[in-house]
Design a protein around this nucleic acid. Structure first.
Lengths: 202, 202
DNA sequence: ACCATATGAATGAACG
DNA sequence: CGTTCATTCATATGGT
């Protein structure tokens, strides 16, 4: 949460990632109203209409326009609209995927269960902004290490190296012996000495 | 989705999560079922500091170094660092672009009684458009009642790495107003003026 | 009160 | 780089 921390500083989970000393006391709600956006009925209605009309991934401009219009019905920010569409779309697909699972159960098809079709666009004007390329390999099928392994291997998976795809860009490192250094010392009362992170950049 | 992540460890349970609607009980908390990198508070802090110090696109070497150092606090890979910076940078811009509007035109109809509309509470420590100099910003996870005070010392060696690289080019108004428009009129009940939501998408 | 669900918000990972 | 997807966390709300 560098700067995320939306909802002000209200009740953010004390330390969820640290894993240490799970502070779990979340019971007290202290129902501060202004914690997260609570859309009004009208806002939801408009958003739903837009979604049903086929709008799935509004651009930044669209988001702002929508937000502006909806602000008439109550407090709203652009990011709310953004998240709304993100969530709505994701949840719909999520549900869809769950349903599509049972069908695979019948066929016992070892191959990939074929991703759910993505033609749920109800375009009012036959427009097609994004060709909808969500072709994520939802494969990831059961991580069952054992069991009937009848997966047809077309080609060895770990044949070619493919070490770090994310490093494909990185041009030649021009690390110079610069004097500028950034030292960050974080000392926690843990069982380790204060780490002295010293990086030279530029 | 490879999920292999160079090594293939963690047999992450394939989204079982009680069947649906993640979250749920608060008890789940840090399931810490590794499937994807879950940075620790210390790691996030260091990364954030580096970012604040001006590091935006670390080179391969820098990524390696950072990853090495941060591995002390928990499992981490180079690609995590790489992605972290990518995301952080992208989201900052994205957010800033979104926040820019929607504050001027607030019709703010007295539909909702209570609502001290200071919708700036979302960013407790708003980022720094102006030159950033204050490094006493340890404002993360403020709700930590624990006595675990992390002593983060940041001392510039030469001079504070004044992040001058804030001269990112802004591709202003690259989008043209298309004539395709979608009008959504929601005037079901007459309890509100017939809002004519007209959005031009695509 | 607790539990269950719905949903807003955040972010890691990846794609184009 | 900007965008998109998936997953997870957090919270508001309603049912029992």
């Amino acid at each position: 949460m560098e700067e995320g921390m939306s909802g002000g500083f209200c009740i953010q989970t004390p330390a969820r990632r640290g894993g240490s000393s799970g502070g779990g006391g979340v019971g007290t709600g202290t129902g501060t109203k202004c914690g997260r956006w609570n859309p009004t009925a009208e806002q939801v209605k408009v958003l739903t209409e837009l979604f049903r009309a086929g709008l799935r991934t509004p651009s930044t401009d669209q988001i702002q326009k929508i937000s502006s219009q909806l602000s008439f019905y109550g407090k709203i920010e652009s990011k709310n609209v953004f998240y709304w569409f993100q969530n709505h779309k994701a949840r719909e697909r999520q549900k869809r995927r769950r349903v599509s699972k049972d069908s695979a159960l019948l066929h016992h098809q070892p191959s990939c269960p074929q991703q759910l079709d993505h033609h749920d666009h109800i375009r009012p004007t036959a427009h097609d902004p994004p060709p909808t390329k969500y072709f994520t390999e939802i494969n990831q099928a059961s991580c069952e290490p054992q069991g009937a392994i009848e997966t047809l291997q077309l080609f060895p998976l770990n044949s070619y190296p493919e070490p770090e795809p994310w490093k494909l860009r990185m041009f030649s490192d021009e690390l110079k012996e610069n004097d500028a250094a950034f030292a960050c010392t974080i000392g926690r009362e843990r069982d380790h000495p204060p780490l002295d992170l010293r990086l030279s950049f530029f």
